[in-house]
């Protein structure tokens, strides 16, 4: 790897990091606007035209508020919790293929930071690590409500990780590879050999299971039991104030962005869009349009996350566990068996 490659990678890392932060920032704005729309309100409209500067005002407020660390909290872990939450949220973007390679002069720029051949498992590992931020923060606060929130987060994440993993296994049986880049390439275009190329049409049940688990793993309503206000005050972040609280809230939006990107890549064709090589455009232009297509899909998923949040009420805790263990896991196993039979007898 030459110096030019390293510089290109560094620039790519910085761009992706900046984009995910900006998208997370404006997701908070979008969430408030969408919530307002669903409840027939106007939503934030004072900071700038249409309230467009509201995220900046929120950020400024978060930074300037008084920072409180409870007297009996474990100080190091109290700070480590939110840091870990935002760290694990940000590193997930490293393996996502954002588009086809760009060619500028003699340089070929792959729009993916790391093409490791266990890409999906890396994502899965990062997801499973995400719960530590919540658990450590909740425990370190030395508060019963926080602790209950942390414990709920742990058991919820473990339960839904299993069905998430099983739904991924069925997908892997279809794709035959663990590399996200190859999975995106397999879904090239939209139609080939008499069937859709996108995996959502090959694994509809798997996608349904995956998206339910994605809601649970990102702690979004209807699965936001760890921060259930009506029972636990504020859940794991009850004791947090200022930017440390901001980190927890921000991590949730980054997680939403990353899981949207993962779902778009695994099931909805990634950067591919219909007729991409029948338009007669140059490769670079197609690559850029592909990046735009991927982001459009991600925004659609983020909107879906918000749509569900303001439509469906929260589960009760026993319902959550029942759904995870008694419905999703048997369905995921059935999905694996069906996929296996299909591969053996039809394909």
């Amino acid at each position: 790897m030459g110096l030019a490659d390293i510089i290109i990678k560094l620039i790519l890392v910085v761009i992706i990091f900046a984009i995910s932060l900006v998208i997370a920032m404006y997701s908070t704005y979008a969430e408030r606007k969408i919530a307002a729309f669903f409840q027939q309100r106007i939503g934030p409209n004072r900071a700038g035209p249409w309230g467009i500067l509201q995220p900046l005002a929120d950020g400024g407020k978060m930074f300037l508020k008084e920072e409180i660390i409870p007297a009996n909290a474990s100080k190091f872990l109290f700070i480590a919790g939110p840091s870990l939450a935002i760290l694990t949220a940000c590193i997930g973007t490293a393996v996502i293929p954002w588009g086809q390679s760009l060619t500028i002069g003699k340089y070929v720029i792959p729009l993916q930071v790391a093409d490791i051949n266990v890409g999906i498992l890396y994502i899965f590992g990062v997801v499973s690590l995400g719960v530590y931020g919540v658990m450590i923060g909740g425990w370190a606060s030395n508060n019963k409500y926080s602790l209950l929130g942390a414990i709920r987060a742990a058991s919820q994440n473990i339960s839904y990780e299993i069905s998430m993993g099983l739904s991924i296994i069925a997908l892997l049986m279809v794709t035959g590879t663990l590399s996200l880049k190859e999975i995106a390439e397999q879904q090239h275009g939209f139609w080939s050999h008499g069937w859709f190329t996108w995996n959502v049409f090959r694994q509809p049940l798997g996608f349904l299971l995956f998206i339910v688990c994605a809601f649970a793993e990102t702690n979004r309503t209807p699965f936001d039991l760890p921060e259930c206000e009506t029972e636990l005050v504020g859940g794991y972040h009850t004791e947090y104030s200022s930017m440390k609280l901001g980190f927890y809230l921000f991590a949730e939006y980054i997680n939403m962005f990353v899981s949207g990107a993962v779902m778009a890549t695994l099931y909805f064709g990634g950067y591919n869009f219909p007729f991409m090589h029948h338009l007669g455009l140059s490769d670079n232009l197609v690559a850029i349009l592909g990046v735009i297509a991927l982001f459009a899909k991600i925004f659609a998923f983020i909107f879906f996350f918000m749509w569900v949040r303001w439509t469906i009420p929260r589960f009760r805790y026993d319902q959550l566990m029942d759904l995870g263990w008694k419905v999703l896991i048997p369905l995921a196993i059935a999905n694996i068996i069906i996929t296996g039979l299909w591969i053996t007898f039809v394909k």
Binding site: V118, L121, S128, M135, I151, S155
Partner: peptide
């Protein structure tokens, strides 16, 4: 690679979460 990532997911991501869970619960 496979062993590394499975160690990461299973031990760090699941088993130790359960360890931590139990310890926090019995306090």
């Amino acid at each position: 690679q496979f062993l590394a990532i499975v160690n990461f997911i299973v031990y760090m991501g699941a088993i130790l979460v359960l360890f931590l869970y139990t310890l926090m619960l019995i306090n």
